[in-house]
């Protein structure tokens, strides 16, 4: 193998990593807000799937991918509304709620998908193009890896410091973190716990829906059942492995994406091992990560515990 070829593959793997990070990063950094507010949303996978499915329907029906992006966020928000209703208003166990949402969405998307393509060939759409950033994209290596990406990829990376600022530098972020640690401290000051939990769930769900939308529009031209394939779960793992800190979440997402990117390059690398091994990597890695990283010092104390007065 020539050196030039090796270089090209390395750059391709890394550029792929950055792209693959995008949907998981949207979900993980958004759900970080939700979890910081004490709501352990286990329905991330379903929310993401709903976002991806909606993006597909809107993209193929209208031909506008930006409309599709918007729709995936709106629908993500709707799923979030249901999650918030179940967890913050009805105070059903957060885990059970998430499972219910996942199962519901799996059923709904499959059903609507069958109806949508009934009696015709599956329609396709034109996904996102790369938007190279002038000047920066011409830097050797780095330009191709970091600055020749889809527009939403830049947005996802910008979201990390933005969410950090929101959580740690605003009055609202302080209140939100307080919800995850001790919601009663807000309640006794007469501030609505439920209302704030709704907002936190919505932020997470809208961003997760957006992640699903990008997954659909940024990687493929057609929908397939269970297209999210556990990425929502990886987002949750990334939050835990990242010790509930924005930079940690970013690092954990990077690991998953790198593994997946390597898996997609296996054929090019010409390794003679069952491809399932590489496909299994991110899932295996998530278990190993959780086994190894046992620092949970920043886990919100009241995470996943419904608040009763």
């Amino acid at each position: 193998m020539s050196e030039l070829f090796q270089e090209a593959i390395l750059v391709s793997i890394l550029a792929g990593t950055v792209r693959i990070m995008t949907p998981i990063l949207f979900a993980a950094i958004g759900e970080l807000v939700t979890q910081r507010a004490g709501i352990w949303n286990m329905g991330v996978e379903g929310t993401m799937l709903m976002g991806a499915f909606t993006a597909y329907i809107v993209a193929t029906a209208t031909g506008s991918i930006w409309l599709a992006v918007l729709a995936s966020m709106v629908v993500g928000g709707l799923v979030g509304l249901l999650t918030a209703f179940m967890t913050a208003t009805m105070r059903v166990d957060h885990f059970i709620t998430g499972l219910g949402i996942n199962l519901l969405v799996a059923g709904l998307t499959l059903y609507w998908f069958r109806i949508y393509i009934k009696g015709r060939a599956q329609p396709t759409f034109d996904g996102f193009e790369n938007v190279p950033i002038p000047v920066l994209s011409s830097i050797p290596w780095l330009g191709e890896i970091l600055f020749s990406q889809r527009l939403l990829t830049y947005v996802a990376f910008a979201a990390v410091p933005a969410i950090w600022f929101l959580l740690y530098r605003t009055r609202w972020g302080l209140e939100l973190r307080c919800l995850g640690e001790n919601p009663k401290a807000l309640d006794i000051k007469g501030l609505s716990v439920t209302g704030r939990q709704y907002i936190a769930v919505l932020i997470g769900s809208v961003m997760t829906g957006l992640g699903g939308g990008f997954l659909m529009l940024g990687f493929s031209d057609r929908y397939l059942a269970d297209i999210t394939a556990g990425r929502g779960w990886l987002a949750i793992v990334a939050i835990i492995a990242g010790n509930w800190l924005p930079r940690g979440v970013l690092a954990a997402v990077l690991v998953f994406a790198l593994l997946e990117s390597i898996a997609t390059h296996v054929q090019v690398l010409g390794l003679n091992v069952p491809h399932q091994i590489f496909l299994a990597m991110p899932y295996l890695a998530s278990i190993l990560l959780l086994m190894g990283l046992r620092r949970k010092s920043s886990q919100p104390l009241r995470l996943g515990i419904p608040y009763f007065r």
Binding site: A106, G107, F113
Partner: peptide
């Protein structure tokens, strides 16, 4: 009707039952 209606129905019933339990 696509038989995928059944899993969707199951999901709806589950959430409805959870709320009823509360």
């Amino acid at each position: 009707v696509p038989d995928a209606l059944v899993p969707a129905m199951q999901g709806i019933l589950l959430l409805a039952f959870l709320c009823a339990g509360v």
